[in-house]
C-alpha cells in the first residue's frame, strides 16, 4: 500500500542509554487503517520504540510525525489526547477498581468532568451505558462489578483493550497483546484486534508470529535497534537476514 495515507512516521528515531544504543535511526511509516506489526528478537528495541512514540521516554534524536504534526516534544498525556493511545507489556489495569470503573476512567477523561471534586461520583453513572457496551464488545459484560485484580490474565488484556477503545483512538499501540496467554485467550484477543482495527490503525509489538502472520498488513523487523526488513509476512519471512536474526525459529 505505497500510496495510502501515512498516519505515523518516524525519521531517524534513536535512543541511547549511556552509550548503549537501544534504537538506531529507525524510519517507520504506519499507513492509516492497517495493522502494522513490529517484531524482532528479544532486546531488539521494540518496547523502547513504543516508549519513544508515546513519549514515555524522550528520544535522543529523530522526529516523530503523527497526522502531519510533529509530536517529538509533546507530553505523554497530550499524545494520548491526540488519539494515539498505547497499552503496556505488563497488563495495565487499575487493579482495585472494578472492571466497569476501569473503563469509566477512560470515558470520564474523554468527556470531561474529571476535576470536579465537589460533585458526587453519581454523575459518573451517565457513562455506565457506554462502558457496558465496550465491555460487551470484549466479552466482559458479566464481570462489570468484579475488581480488575481478580480477572484472569487474558481478561485483563481484554479489559485493557476496552479501556483503550473508550478513548476512541485513531491509532492504537499494543505492546505484546498476547504475551503469556493460553491458546484460547490468544485466539480471542486476535479476533478482538481484528475487530477493533476495522475503524482504526493498530501498531503492535508481538512475539506470536502466528498472530502476526494472520493479522498484520505490514511487518517491520527490528534487530539490535535497527530496521532489518519491512513488508508483508511473505516477503519478510523469506528474508535471509530475518531468518538469521531469529536463528530459524520463526514460522512453524
Amino acid at each position: 500500500m505505497p500510496d495510502s495515507d501515512v498516519i505515523l512516521e518516524t525519521r531517524g528515531l534513536s535512543k541511547e542509554f549511556r552509550g548503549f544504543v537501544a534504537v538506531k535511526g529507525v524510519d517507520l511509516k504506519v499507513a492509516r487503517g492497517t495493522i502494522h506489526a513490529l517484531i524482532g528478537p528479544n532486546g531488539a528495541g521494540k518496547t523502547t520504540c513504543f516508549n519513544l512514540l508515546t513519549r514515555f521516554l524522550p528520544a535522543t534524536s529523530g522526529t516523530i510525525v503523527y497526522r502531519g504534526e510533529d509530536i517529538t516534544r509533546a507530553s505523554p498525556a497530550e499524545i494520548a489526547r491526540k488519539g494515539l493511545v498505547r497499552s503496556f507489556q505488563i497488563s495495565a489495569v487499575f487493579p482495585h477498581l472494578t472492571v466497569l470503573e476501569n473503563v469509566r476512567i477512560a470515558l470520564q477523561r474523554k468527556r470531561g468532568s474529571s476535576f470536579d471534586f465537589w460533585r458526587s461520583d453519581r454523575v459518573l453513572r451517565a457513562y455506565h451505558q457506554r462502558a457496558r457496551e465496550l465491555l460487551d464488545a470484549v466479552g466482559l459484560q458479566d464481570f462489570a462489578q468484579v475488581p480488575a485484580i481478580e480477572l484472569s490474565y487474558g481478561r485483563k488484556r481484554a479489559l485493557e483493550i476496552a479501556t483503550t477503545l473508550a478513548l476512541e483512538p485513531e491509532l492504537m499501540l499494543l505492546d505484546e497483546p498476547t504475551a503469556g496467554m493460553g491458546n484460547e485467550d490468544v485466539e480471542r484477543i486476535a479476533r478482538l484486534i481484528q475487530q477493533v482495527a476495522k475503524d482504526r490503525t493498530v501498531l503492535m509489538v508481538e512475539h506470536n508470529l502466528g498472530i502476526v502472520a494472520s493479522l498484520s498488513h505490514t511487518i517491520t523487523v527490528l534487530a539490535r535497534g535497527e530496521v532489518l526488513a519491512e513488508g508483508s509476512y511473505q516477503s519478510v519471512s523469506k528474508n535471509s537476514a530475518v531468518i538469521a536474526a531469529y536463528l530459524g525459529t520463526e514460522h512453524g
Binding site: P76, A77, F94, Q108, S120, D121
Partner: peptide, 28 residues
C-alpha cells in the same frame, strides 16, 4: 465528597497505575 467524586476516581486511578492514567491522557 472529594474521595467520592469524579476527581477522586481519577486520583484513585493515579494511585493504582500512574503510567496507565497518563496513557489515557490524564495530566496526572
Amino acid at each position: 465528597r472529594t474521595v467520592h467524586s469524579p476527581f477522586g476516581q481519577v486520583l484513585t486511578a493515579i494511585r493504582e497505575n500512574e503510567p496507565r492514567a497518563i496513557s489515557l491522557g490524564y495530566k496526572v
